[in-house]
Simulated assay, not measured.
Amino acid sequence: MQSLGSIRRDFAPWADPEVRPYIVFENVTKRFGDFTAVNNLSLSIYEREFFALLGASGCGKSTLLRMLAGFDDPTAGRILLDGQDLRGIPPYRRPVNMMFQSYALFPHMTVEQNVAFGLKQEGMAKPEIAQRVAEMLKLVKLTQFAKRKPHQLSGGQRQRVALARSVAKRPKVLLLDEPLGALDKKLREETQFELMDLQQNLGLTFVIVTHDQEEAMTMADRIAILEKGEVMQVATPAEIYEAPGSRYVASFVGNINMFEGTLARHDGNGTEIRLADGMVIRSESGANVPAGTQVAFAIRPEKIAVSSRPPADGLNAAEGEIYDIAYLGDMTVYNVRLANGQMVKTTSLNASRVVQDPLTWHDRAWISFRPDAGVILTR
């Protein structure tokens, strides 16, 4: 089987039917009055998985996290953790811990006192607390800041204190609700890799809620795309990006071009899609629907070439006009308007300092792509 995207690591318990899921949402519904936040949702998460709940505001992702933590109860359905039904178990009795976006550090306590707080509440002996706190501060690289108070730390350092406090009690599952939202872009990117390393070192199950696609794609083993309280697709980042299951998922994650048309032919030689303007797209992507079905051919901008000349084979090519250009340093984005009025976004990697085929505004240009570059969507 051909893999999609880069190989992340040799970890895929969801592909083994013998492995039992660690967290199970079983037909879970949550209503707040007349509003349904989560609608008959079923989802499985595996032990030691870094799992992301991704979606727009109001899609139900934080509600799922709160129900798992015990702050809200399902209206219907049940939630299992390691085979145990969590209904009726209060938050402080659950083997989970939650890290909030606000961090919620105690301003009058030092770093080490903040990390030790939960351990003291559990009645752990002082020598054990001291040892555990030292371990946690070393893990998040804050040993030298142990005596400082939160206001004396940077945003990234406060985030790591909150993280150390969350994992100090060694929960089975760590829940992260938009944990990097308060950080600037560069620090957020650095912290993403720190979180990945920490999760690997601790061997814990991480469940993160985020609306940041790049964040989910970077850190998660798998991603659940949510919309209006329902799961649209659960897959690895590469599968979500390269093989989205619907128009919604394709449009939500990254940039995408959609060519709407009719499936004209599907056989051993591939698939042909006929567009309204007569253009025929040849694709190696399969489609389990009969000829005559309305479908969409979805293709990412980086998989479309743009040139001042048509491709030699004339395959999957269309002529248009350069409408907009954005130079981003590492790449250049071209918006090409085709004869039928459709705008197509393409990106070209600036691998050389010399531009071989310069294009500018209002130039005539050709777009083209390979038969294996896109995916056919039927819903």
Results as ranks from 00 to 15, higher is better:
245 G>N: 10
302 E>M: 11
219 M>P: 05
272 E>D: 06
289 V>T: 11
216 A>S: 03
236 T>Y: 09
261 G>Q: 12
272 E>V: 07
235 A>S: 14
285 S>I: 10
230 E>L: 10
249 V>G: 03
281 I>E: 01
302 E>P: 02
229 G>P: 00
268 G>W: 15
262 T>R: 13
302 E>Y: 12
294 Q>R: 15
293 T>G: 03
275 L>R: 12
298 A>F: 11
240 I>Q: 08
246 S>V: 02
277 D>L: 09
271 T>E: 06
233 Q>S: 00
279 M>A: 09
301 P>Y: 14
228 K>W: 10
214 E>S: 12
240 I>G: 02
302 E>C: 08
287 A>L: 12
266 H>R: 08
236 T>H: 07
217 M>R: 00
256 I>S: 01
224 A>I: 11
244 P>N: 13
229 G>C: 08
228 K>Y: 12
216 A>P: 12
244 P>D: 10
297 F>L: 12
273 I>H: 03
279 M>I: 04
282 R>H: 10
254 G>V: 10
265 R>D: 07
218 T>E: 15
236 T>E: 15
244 P>H: 09
263 L>I: 07
237 P>I: 11
253 V>G: 01
240 I>Y: 00
230 E>F: 03
234 V>T: 15
239 E>I: 11
276 A>C: 02
237 P>L: 08
233 Q>R: 04
246 S>Y: 05
281 I>Q: 03
266 H>C: 08
300 R>P: 02
215 E>P: 13
288 N>C: 10
282 R>A: 11
